[in-house]
Design a binder for these strands. Sequence first.
DNA 1: CAACTATATTAGAACCTGCTCATATTACTA
DNA 2: TAGTAATATGAGCAGGTTCTAATATAGTTG
Lengths: 125, 125
Amino acid sequence: MGKNATDTASQSGRPDDSAESACCTPIPDIDEDALVGDVQLLSALGNDTRYELVRRIGAAEDSVCVCDLEAAVGISQSGVSQALSRLYSAGLVTRRKEGSWRYYGLTDDAEQILDTLDALGGDHE
Amino acid sequence: MGKNATDTASQSGRPDDSAESACCTPIPDIDEDALVGDVQLLSALGNDTRYELVRRIGAAEDSVCVCDLEAAVGISQSGVSQALSRLYSAGLVTRRKEGSWRYYGLTDDAEQILDTLDALGGDHE
DNA sequence: CAACTATATTAGAACCTGCTCATATTACTA
DNA sequence: TAGTAATATGAGCAGGTTCTAATATAGTTG
């Protein structure tokens, strides 16, 4: 305590009012609201279990029943259901009910993203 | 750059050859190793702070100095540095040193993904 | 060299996520 | 209607993530 003998000079301000800013390039403002939706989508995909589910659904010809997915990803039925639910909220999968079964498929958005990811790093396998 | 030829022959992994399966459509196996890299990329982007950084870097004409980003995203210098570090590891941003400053820019991969995200939901809005 | 600036790294606390278990719901069947 | 199968939902915990503060490192300048 008792450290504030002489308050330092102006330090925490942004030194950019002079016309000759040293490093600072002006960055334009962005639409922060638009970010929220994107982050929701990306964070839904950015998880091992959910991404594997999406990939498996995408690899199937048609939509896939939950029971298949359970066997594939190796977590409990409840976990799969929750994961699919999150993907659905993020707009990445479609749901179709048929009898007691639910069939999941990819949305167009999800397919677009997977295509883009497949096209990345096309040089290193 | 064709699709990866998943030509895996029938591997004796799962006993599901009985024709009795009621709902189950066969889902092909997928390349689990390839998923890891994608998830790393997606989870790096799937965070408010990091995605905002990426968007701000992308919105600038040229590369951006860290000091600008700090002011923009409203977290501590340390936090910004850590976030940029993670984006760099994920292959989403480039680093350039110039004097005491570091300039960050987007990689081609990051630009591709942002373009894809911008193109999604092009009908509603 | 000493002081200062810009960025990186480390440590640790608060918060968030993703799983399992238990239970609820819905649809089919005898 | 009872019983059973398929999926969803809720509680709660283990482990992970993301901040902040403190400190280290590197470049720059007097």
